[in-house]
Simulated scan of single mutants.
Amino acid sequence: MRFLPALVALAFAVPSAAQPLPNYDMEELRGAIAQKDLGKIAVLAAEQGGEQILLERFDGKDAGTPIDIRSAGKSITALAVGAAIADGALVDTQVTIWPYLGRPRGEPWDSITVGDLLGMSSALDCNDWDRKSPGQEERMYRTRVWRDFALDLPAREYERDAQGEGPFSYCTAGVFLLGQVVEKATGQRFDNYVQQRIFDPLGIEGVIWRTSRSGEIQSGGQLTIGAEALLKIGRLVLDKGRWDGEQLIPESWIRLMVAPRHQLGQHVHYGSLWWTTPLRSLRGYEGAVMMKGNGGNIVALVPTYDAVFVVQAENYNRKDAERHAFTALTAMLGALEAPEGITAE
């Protein structure tokens, strides 16, 4: 099985050893989770080659009980945009958003494109990582109508680089607006469109979307969903948009969606609402594509192993949440046999 040659060829360097991850095997990992050494990890799941090989629950709840994966849900919005383009509802990522949202305001607002919002690089003065930012997501949640909040955000100083990219600024409000664009373009409420276009073909049910007090669907994350559903979404992307013999999402969109657009750290890249970063294996480091959310919620796709891994956790707002999730991912990857004929990075 081959997936995204450009991704597999990424020359990921070895992450800094300043704070190396614990080198757990699976039994040691289970013990650490039971002792709460890794906080509140609730579910571990994995599949390889389309076959589920692991699904374990650690919080005492029923196996299928969904968990809020926070911003990992943003990656599903990227899939919805790709579906809308494939359906002819959207032309491409270069279309500007204001004709769909009905709020022209002058530059640089009027030049914000679907692609800008996908890459967290729009002119919106919005940075979730800065509590003083006008668009910081907690400010949006305090309002009744999120659409008005997002559309009224001021613009920041903005200039595109030679590749046409604006500066990166992590903005949930912008991803919420993407959902509003998809609604207008498709003529369907965002959750209904995603259910019909993506979830129903995958056999996914019982997903819970957060809404504003006025009933708007939060396409910017905070999606409550089960681990088995996340394995299916990961497999859909790993198989380049194909599911059960049907091309649900164009392969060209999958390639574009996960292609790195911004380098956020020595080993961390951001594409179109998807992340790329390496995972340590027994033979080196493997390139991986990820959905990532607050609390240590991660879905990791490892092409060289033809595998999907899921960590669902409730370590919300903890600085060590992602580290604990990567500890679990490393142990799960280490439990698999290395594929023949494909080398690590």
Rank of each mutant, 00 (worst) to 15 (best):
L238Y: 01
H267Y: 13
R255C: 12
A42L: 12
A321E: 06
P108Y: 03
A83K: 15
M120H: 00
R318V: 11
I198E: 03
E322L: 11
P260Y: 08
I208K: 12
Y270C: 03
F58V: 10
A45N: 04
L230C: 10
I41M: 03
R323C: 10
R156F: 01
R283L: 13
M257A: 03
P154K: 00
T330K: 08
N317E: 14
R235L: 03
V194T: 06
I233H: 04
T330H: 01
A307P: 04
M291S: 05
Q163C: 10
L21H: 03
G341H: 14
E28F: 00
P260F: 04
A63K: 14
L223N: 09
G241K: 01
S169V: 09
R139I: 05
Q195R: 15
A185D: 01
A13D: 13
N23S: 13
G271P: 01
A83I: 13
M291T: 05
D128F: 05
G64S: 14
V175W: 00
F199V: 10
L4P: 05
N315V: 05
R197S: 08
E345R: 12
P278H: 09
V299H: 01
T172K: 05
G179C: 07
W275Y: 06
E137K: 11
V181P: 04
T113S: 01
I217R: 13
